[in-house]
């Protein structure tokens, strides 16, 4: 279908554009000179865009390494002795490590649970069409797009009545619920890329459906599972709204901590800057190391739709 379309399209555009193209001929063909100049210009634009995109991080880093007494001068100080005091203060005077720990625990636990639950469901949906599968897929799509408040405000009440309010358990459970539909969506597309014949061959060789899934299909799904895991982790790590509603003091996450620092006095702001940077550094590493999987995940199913 797609290939026949591709074969047809050029001829139709050719036909449609032929007349207009000829009228433009005087300005049409360009020499190699202009194309090289254009390439340089494109790269300059791209370099400027990269710099602009990183400017919030760079400016924060620049402000955080200033000594506290010049950090908030206006106009800003451009000459100073760089110092890491803000990081030391952050570590010594706040419970940052505890919030960081909470964030990591919640992100890892919710990722693992969402995957363990989502994998078999995604496999079933990819292999067995039918109205139940369609209903589940549509439900997953709608749940993914829901405003968080619609489920998290009741979760607040439920977690209070169960006595698990302000625990990492409650937050992790909430994030499993919120992110799991997306994992099904993502994993189903990867499962669909594994040919059904592999299932059949393995089952003829004596595997049960479940041992086949565990021994044959899941090992084939490596990159897909990594992609889904990275997105689940990323979403949990980024979450603010759910965390601010379901936690108070003991299981707050880093975004919640930073939000409370924002309304405070200036030295605390610098600590918030330091905390932001500490969280952005792993993000840098992530953007480079996991790039392939991030791109695969963003494009899975999306481009087709």
């Amino acid at each position: 279908m797609a290939s026949s379309e591709a074969a047809q399209r050029p001829t139709t555009t050719q036909g449609r554009d032929a007349g207009r193209g000829r009228a433009k001929l005087p300005t049409g063909p360009r020499g190699p000179h202009t194309s090289r100049a254009r390439k340089v210009a494109a790269n300059v634009v791209l370099a400027v865009v990269c710099l602009l995109m990183l400017s919030p991080v760079l400016w924060t880093a620049f402000s955080v390494i200033k000594p506290t007494n010049v950090a908030f001068l206006n106009p800003p100080a451009f000459t100073f002795t760089p110092t890491l005091d803000a990081f030391v203060n952050l570590w010594q005077t706040t419970n940052f490590y505890q919030y960081l720990g909470n964030t990591l625990v919640v992100a890892v636990v919710s990722t693992v649970v969402a995957l363990v639950i989502g994998l078999p469901a995604a496999y079933a949906l990819s292999r067995s069409p039918g109205w139940v599968s369609v209903a589940l897929l549509v439900a997953a799509l709608v749940f993914r797009a829901l405003p968080r408040t619609a489920v998290v405000l009741p979760m607040y009440e439920i977690s209070r009545s169960l006595g698990i309010y302000d625990t990492t358990l409650a937050l992790a459970l909430a994030l499993v619920a919120i992110n799991q539909p997306f994992s099904i969506w993502l994993l189903r597309n990867f499962f669909a890329a594994v040919p059904k014949e592999i299932d059949e061959a393995a089952m003829i060789d004596g595997c049960t459906r479940f041992s086949m899934l565990r021994l044959v299909i899941i090992p084939l799904m490596g990159p897909g599972i990594i992609t889904a895991a990275l997105f689940m982790f990323l979403f949990a790590f980024q979450e603010y709204l759910t965390a601010v509603i379901l936690t108070d003091v003991s299981s707050a996450t880093v975004p919640v901590f930073i939000a409370t620092q924002l309304g405070q006095t200036l030295p605390l702001l610098q600590q918030a800057g330091a905390a932001s940077l500490l969280l952005t550094l792993p993000v840098f590493v992530f953007a480079f190391v996991a790039q392939k999987y991030l791109i695969a995940g963003l494009n899975s199913g999306s481009v087709k739709g």
């Binding site: 990269c50 603010y240 930073i258 952005t280 953007a287 991030l294």
Partner: peptide, 11 residues
């Protein structure tokens, strides 16, 4: 270019 997408929205 990906950094601003990966960093948590609040931060």
């Amino acid at each position: 270019l990906l950094v601003s997408y990966v960093v948590p929205g609040l931060i």
